[in-house]
Design a protein around this nucleic acid. Structure first.
Length: 490
RNA sequence: GCCCCCAUCGUCUAGCGGCCCAGGACAUCGCCCUCUCACGGCGAAGACACCGGUUCAAAUCCGGUUGGGGGUACCA
């Protein structure tokens, strides 16, 4: 009886963006916590903008985030179909029922006529609402209009008095004046499709949705929907309107703020659990100390009454930090699994990785792990481990190779490397230190030129580790190459 | 225009009448570690939008102002 049934109902008119993902996440968490059902429904009633690619992109995005649905596309369920475009008969049936009850009527007004009336209402300082011009049309008038070729829409006849209350789980009681706030809105368009405010009610009612968790942008539409529930005698679900996500300029988060598509985040190297963790914290918090929440803990601790009422600015820097935290928590093996596609795409490693190569990768990753925020960063950071043909970073050359004695120091380092039984700190450091006295310089003045010589950059993991990974041959070749370059330059 | 929602450090937030001259995290700055960069450790700076009430006592309750967001479609 009290089964929790929630749903995520995106319209396939583009990629899933982080706002939608966050809504999906809150629904999913709520369902999982209560042992309920998470339904995925595709709201594709906008014929002009809905595409199959978008549907697929949404499915892929949810999968990446690990938000599995119990009923919906590719999964089925006993409340289907789960595409609104396949539920047209249902909407028609209930629209007719409303008309028979006298709670809906055909309207022949053209968009132009309606626009004009709206403008006048605004000019007069009134709220905008349909003037019920078509409510009292006689059968003859209707027939005449249809002969003219006008195709009617169906409007809901809203209540003439009183207020409609939305008892929101997050915002508390919100009251709307029926006359001023609930228009005789269109429920069936002239193309035979239902409008959002109608279809959402029919579907949520028929799918026995118990809690409607959605963005705050739907709060103002809720009284309209509640009137439909009531007119049709459907039980009204509980509502929870979660705050919007904004960009740094406090405008609604959109493409112009940068990446907003979930798949884009995946491609940029964000780990799924980091993404989920960050999204969960946008508008929700647990206490005054914890910020890292593994998914099972989220399922356990999430609650709607800890959801904030104010809109949240999407902070990419915090997401980056969090991604770094999750990267550092990965085992090297798991990190390799995550990094693999990036390295394959860069041509560093083949499709099939030998155990010897994997071992090498793991050793590299051990050094890179504490320095990574994004998986994608590992490509540039690891380039010199996979190719000898790397470019020297101009800033590094300018800064490091401009010092006196550079070439002598590099030659000394080459000798040290050539003579050391092992390329590690234990064997190299004493030799390097001896060099410092000889040249009258500090450790950095020796290590930095050597670093640039073997990596092409002045920023890398610990040099001893890098040298050991590269091996004697490659190190000596690279020092040679650098020396030649310096000679040619002067 | 009309209606609805919201208002604590730059950002996400804790706070639900006294524990708060406001706590945490990211970002920023400084120090330590140190071969560079990270990681890690320590520390600094940084907020209750404003004005009125209510109360012995307000970040917390009420009203207003201002500001931000949303809705007002034959989009969802």
């Amino acid at each position: 009886m009290n089964t929790v049934r929630v749903r995520f109902a995106p319209s396939p008119t583009g990629y899933l963006h982080v706002g939608g993902a966050r809504t999906a996440l809150f629904n999913w968490l709520f369902a999982r916590q209560h042992g309920g059902v998470f339904v995925l429904r595709i709201e594709d009633t906008d014929l002009a903008r809905s595409t199959e690619e978008s549907t697929q992109a949404i499915l892929d995005s949810l999968q990446y985030l690990g938000l599995d649905w119990d009923e919906g596309p590719k999964k089925g369920g006993s409340f289907g179909p789960y595409f609104q475009s396949e539920r047209l008969e249902l909407y028609k049936k209930y629209a007719n029922q409303l008309m028979e009850m006298g709670r809906a009527y055909k309207c022949y007004c053209t968009p132009e006529e309606l626009d004009k009336k709206r403008e006048e209402q605004i000019k007069r300082g009134e709220g905008t609402h349909y003037d019920r011009h078509c409510l009292h049309l006689s059968e003859e008038e209707k027939a005449r209009l249809e002969e003219e070729g006008r195709i009617p829409v169906i409007r809901f006849k809203s209540l003439d008095e009183g207020v409609t209350e939305v008892d929101d789980l997050i915002r508390g009681l919100v009251r709307f004046d029926n006359v001023a706030q609930v228009d005789d809105f269109v429920i069936m368009k002239s193309d035979g499709m239902p409008t959002y405010n109608f279809a959402v009610v029919i579907d949520d009612a028929l799918m026995q949705i118990s809690h409607v968790i959605r963005g705050e942008d739907h709060l103002s539409n809720t009284p309209k929907q509640i009137q439909i529930y009531q007119a049709l005698g459907f039980p009204v679900p509980k509502f929870a309107h979660i705050p919007m996500i904004l960009g740094p300029d406090r405008a609604l988060l959109s493409k112009r703020h940068g990446a907003t598509s979930v798949m884009q985040f995946k491609e940029n190297g964000y780990l799924s659990p980091a993404m989920v963790n960050y999204l969960a914290l946008l508008g929700w918090s647990y206490d005054d100390s914890q910020t890292i929440f593994p998914i099972p803990e989220l399922v356990e601790k999430f609650s709607l009454d800890k959801v904030s009422k104010n809109p949240a600015v999407f902070d990419i820097q915090k997401l980056d930090w969090m991604n770094g935290v999750y990267i550092r928590e990965l085992s090297l093996d798991d990190l390799f699994t995550e990094v693999k596609p990036f390295w394959q795409k860069a041509g560093f490693i083949p499709e099939e990785v030998s155990s010897e190569l994997k071992d090498y990768c793991l050793r590299i990753l051990k050094e890179l792990q504490p320095r990574m925020k994004l998986l994608s960063e590992s490509v540039e950071a690891a380039r010199y481990f996979f190719t000898d043909d790397f470019a020297y970073k101009p800033e590094a050359v300018a800064k490091v190779f401009s010092k006196p004695q550079t070439e002598e120091i590099l030659r000394y380092a080459a000798d040290a490397v050539a003579g050391a039984p092992e390329l590690d700190e234990e064997h190299l450091k004493p030799v390097f230190q001896a060099g410092l006295e000889k040249f009258g310089v500090k450790m950095g003045d020796l290590m930095q030129p050597l670093r640039v010589a073997v990596t092409g950059t002045n920023v890398s993991p610990g040099l001893y580790e890098v040298l050991a990974l590269l091996g004697r041959d490659r190190v000596l070749k690279r020092i040679d190459r650098t020396l030649n370059m310096l000679k040619e330059r002067s």
